[in-house]
Amino acid sequence: MTEGPDITFVLGTRPEIIKLAPVIRECEDRSLTRSIIHTGQHYDESLDLVFFDQLALPEPTHHLEVGSSTHGRQTGEMIIRIEEILRRERPDTLLVQGDTNSVLAGAIAASKLDIDLGHVEAGLRSDDRTMPEETNRVLTDHASDYLFAPTEQSRARLRSERIPDERIYVTGNTIVDAVEQNRTLAAQRSAVLAEYDLVPGRYCLLTAHRAETIDDEQRFGDLLTGVGRVASHLEREVVYPIHPRAAKSLEAFDLDVPDGIRIVEPQNYLDFLSLEDAASLVLTDSGGVQEEACILGVPSVTLRESTERPETIDVGANRLVGTDPAAIVEGADEMIDRDGEWTNPFGNGTAATQILDTITGAERREVSPK
């Protein structure tokens, strides 16, 4: 490894792996010393560790295998174990991405030590404090030394919270880097369309996994009813790669899956990217999927009451509808014929380069005290 800062990554879920992959690859290209702490926040290997193999990433240096638990117990266990590693290894910079409990745990552990903290995807806000993710992202932003905001809108939000401007860097979102790096690879390697006998542009894609949706019988039932009506109204099958937690809720609530929704197994990243890329419409409660669909030029409907990705709505790529069945159908009807020619608001695919340029000092400024 060459001279430069020692960088440690903390991650624990599929979206973090995908979005940090371009930064990890950039570290490899620059021969920078780096280590990866995998918290094991996702308890299903098909949803996280397999992505390291598929994305040709180095194996995590540390596996914490924390698993699923209450927010407090899970976060507390991660803080304790991350701190032990950081005290032993003393990296210069710790990088986290997004808004999970792994992100908050890494942020708290680093902020108590003499280690710079960088938050990739800083400044996102849903203004819904009932979402645990909102608390995680706000606290992490205010603890960070480097706030890598994906858009000018995110920068403005951080400024409005009185975070010093010299800590904020608008880099674009690493999801653009990831999609650009993997879209062609997915087209070459994935056979998922043939496997499910799907015709590009003739089906819709559904993701629904957030706790506030699937842990509420009424909301989950309304969502499925609305999506079923979309399938009938648009005369297109809706493919639903179901999260294990959602599958458990479906069984526990004894919910009927409407005709027109085909439930399939969780997909690896390249297969899921292929499903997104060839869909005529994406219906989702995922923030990351909102971004990916926007980048791919596929219209989306967000099955939530708020979103921390308002840029997707501003450019006409997305509509926010909640889980009311009639609103879901109305939103799908409005979005289905969008041509995908909107402007990508998330940057030009150089976020990883800009992030490491900042950390290594190419654009480094004096960081103000927290």
Rank of each mutant, 00 (worst) to 15 (best):
S46D: 13
T184F: 10
P310H: 12
P58K: 14
R167K: 15
E84D: 13
A149S: 06
N268A: 10
S154P: 03
L11A: 03
G349P: 04
T174I: 10
E330K: 12
M78S: 06
R25W: 12
G40N: 04
F52S: 07
E363T: 13
E237L: 06
T130N: 14
P91I: 02
V301C: 07
M131W: 05
L296E: 05
I85A: 11
E180F: 07
A362M: 05
K370H: 11
G347W: 02
C27P: 03
G340M: 09
L47W: 01
I36P: 01
Y203G: 00
D53Y: 09
T2L: 14
T33G: 15
T151E: 01
R183G: 07
S274M: 13
E305W: 05
Y146N: 00
T130A: 15
V66S: 02
P200W: 13
D339H: 11
H62S: 01
I242L: 08
Q290C: 13
V315Y: 10
P241A: 12
D337V: 03
I18N: 01
T8V: 00
R338F: 06
I168D: 01
D314L: 11
L296R: 02
V238E: 00
I24C: 04
L147R: 02
V10T: 08
L224F: 10
D6W: 14
L11S: 01
I163R: 00
H42P: 03
Q54I: 14
T8Y: 01
E311Y: 07
L198K: 05
L55A: 02
R30Y: 10
